[in-house]
Amino acid sequence: MSEALITALLVGAIAASVPLMLAGLGELISERAGVLNVGLEGMMLMGAYGGFVVALATGSTWMGFVGGAVAGGLVSLVMVVLCVRWGLDQIVVGIGILLGAEGLTSLLHAAQFANTYPRLGKAAAPSIPWFSDIPVVGRVVFGEPYMVYVTLIAVFVAGWVLRKTPWGLAIRATGESPEAVDAAGVNVVLVRSLATLSAGVLAGLGGAYLSLVSSGNFIPLMTGGRGFMALVLAMLARGRPIWLALGALLFGFATALTTALQIFGIDIRPEIVNSLPFVVVLVVLTLFGRDDYLPSSLALPYVRGER
């Protein structure tokens, strides 16, 4: 293994895992509050589109990320009103959001960019005088696009908030027993609304990462199932952001490995490599899966006085 290969592999793994981490983190937070967000993929797609449009207009990647977060957040407001406030079925509304986002972004893309296919410049990365020159580590650890560091910080902050703060306690309790939370005087609808909103914002950021950093342009349906992958990862992480990040890295590594092996002429089918993490997870679940953990009020709408 040459130095260049190792660098490419690790950089690729991180690049592929960041969108999963961001969207998965959002899903994890909303799941802990008891809201199953099947529309995650749609929120990512809107984030990818919104981020691209804003970045193109302003010329700033950071503004692009803001645009992506706003777009994802706006979509999640549909979920907030229909599922959290009105208690409608989360899976049905989620799928509606997914289909709507697929249709809307494709339509807008066709209307605006179908003939021009504009591209963005390369996302900026830090250049620290001495550290960036270290072989492999310099690029992998100190030379990533800024958003990678933001994502990692977000993972740790979310983990800390969920475990150590009153907000985190409110979120976790709302996912387990909204009745008790309500009786204790905490506003269940507010907690769930904020959790759903943060899922939308984070998924929007994850989508924006795809269009702003990974590819530099917007392609219809470019999320390619990553939202569902993030959803599965969030469920498997058992509510722990760190586990989610590790899971996302595993997936990112599998993706990067396929590309790297193909460059070196080893023809391994991407289908096999892409399935492998899931196969591993299923085997692990089959062998040890006796203590499956999900919030007990997940996907159940809370209506005061019912049940």
């Binding site: 549909v78 079925d89 509304v93 959001i97 997914l98 289909l99 709507g100 249709g103 494709s106 339509l107």
Partner: peptide, 16 residues
């Protein structure tokens, strides 16, 4: 995919 948008709107409005 515009068709998807219509389908999504129908689904959401029906739920509502």
């Amino acid at each position: 995919q515009f068709g998807l948008l219509i389908v999504a709107l129908v689904l959401l409005f029906m739920t509502v």
